[in-house]
């Protein structure tokens, strides 16, 4: 079932968490809400779930206006960053919870509950852990149980709040691939919040980039990466170099792999010196210092780097192959983001 968010705003005292946000999530899609912390993405997720109430705007779940409905009525599956498993219940009882709290008339029989829980535990490949307690499981296992518990109520939509945020890098990678495969199997409309661009690019069908309570861009991973709509997006998704005043007085942006370097001066190239360089497998990351004292990051292939015979302080020429210029409206000096890459 699809999610329609219409002109939703939400303030916490003086802080504007959501500023007139509209978004449509088509049925069966996996959408990532991406942005720095405090950009409003988690608030939007909580508003969809009914854990927060918007000051204005509408939430429509599966064609029904859910703006004023209670959390309990919305039938959304929600996965928390820190799992929020019921610590005093076994894994089995955690997953069974959503079925057991149903009104007597709608509650499945005990045998049916057992069958359903088994099925879900098999789906998340943890059926052998049914009798253990949450604290006996690893972080990755706990999050899979949290997912099984959320799916037990047969939710209309699945919402995940930084689901891999508390896990270490390796488990995180495995789990997000697993989530993608799971989504391809069950096709449940899903929205997940992340501040990790790699996660969003790898897992999502579409990415919604948030900044200061507003949506900066909505698009497929390719679109937001290749055709960023604003300086904020190009900066937040991957690395980018900013070149001051290239035509019309507007700055231009180029990704590190969109810059050519050479030993001899080519047409339109500028001189720079090598500040330092790092080898990452087949790639070499160069940091150059321009005549104006600015830093430029350049990625080159290993073979090319070998031809350049790199050394610190060495003189080179660089030329952006492709510069992205944003129209004046989009190129408003974006407030300094509070993260670093």
């Amino acid at each position: 079932m699809g999610i329609h968010i219409q002109q939703v705003s939400k303030r916490f005292n003086d802080f504007v968490a959501l500023d007139n946000v509209s978004l449509e999530v088509p049925s069966g899609e996996l959408v990532a809400l991406l942005g720095p912390s405090g950009s409003g993405k988690t608030t939007l997720l909580r508003v969809i779930a009914g854990l927060e109430h918007p000051d204005s705007g509408q939430i429509i779940l599966g064609g029904e206006d859910a703006t004023h409905s209670q959390v309990q009525e919305r039938r959304v599956g929600f996965v928390f960053q820190h799992y929020a498993l019921f610590r005093h219940m076994t894994i089995f009882e955690n997953v069974a919870f959503g079925l057991r709290v149903r009104p007597r008339a709608e509650r499945p029989a005990e045998s049916e509950i057992r069958r359903r829980v088994r099925e879900l535990l098999e789906l998340v490949q943890l059926d052998w852990q049914a009798d253990r307690y949450p604290h006996q499981l690893s972080g990755g296992q706990r999050q899979r149980i949290a997912l099984a518990r959320a799916l037990a109520i047969e939710p209309k939509v699945l919402l995940l709040d930084e689901p891999f945020g508390a896990l270490d890098a390796k488990v995180r990678k495995e789990l997000r691939r697993w989530l993608r495969r799971l989504h391809d199997e069950i096709h449940l409309t899903s929205v997940f919040v992340t501040h990790d661009q790699d996660e969003a690019l790898e897992v999502a069908d579409r990415i919604v980039v948030f900044n200061h309570g507003r949506i900066e861009q909505i698009g497929t991973p390719e679109e937001v990466y290749e055709k960023p709509a604003s300086p904020f997006v190009i900066d937040f998704l991957g690395r980018a170099n900013r070149f001051a005043a290239v035509g019309d007085g507007l700055p231009g942006y180029a990704r590190p792999h969109e810059i050519d370097v050479s030993l001899d001066r080519q047409e339109g190239a500028e001189p720079a010196t090598v500040e330092h360089f790092t080898v990452y497998g087949p790639l070499v990351q160069l940091v150059l210092t321009t005549a104006g004292g600015e830093s430029v990051e350049v990625d080159v292939f290993r073979e090319q780097a070998d031809r350049l015979v790199l050394a610190r302080g060495q003189r080179l020429y660089y030329r952006p192959r492709h510069l992205q210029v944003f129209p004046a409206a989009a190129a408003q000096p974006a407030a300094q983001p509070e993260y670093s890459i």
Partner: peptide
């Protein structure tokens, strides 16, 4: 508050 929120999302009333 996470566990209480999780319970509500799973359909549990305040008393439950």
């Amino acid at each position: 508050r996470d566990e209480e929120e999780a319970a509500a999302l799973l359909g549990a009333s305040g008393w439950q």
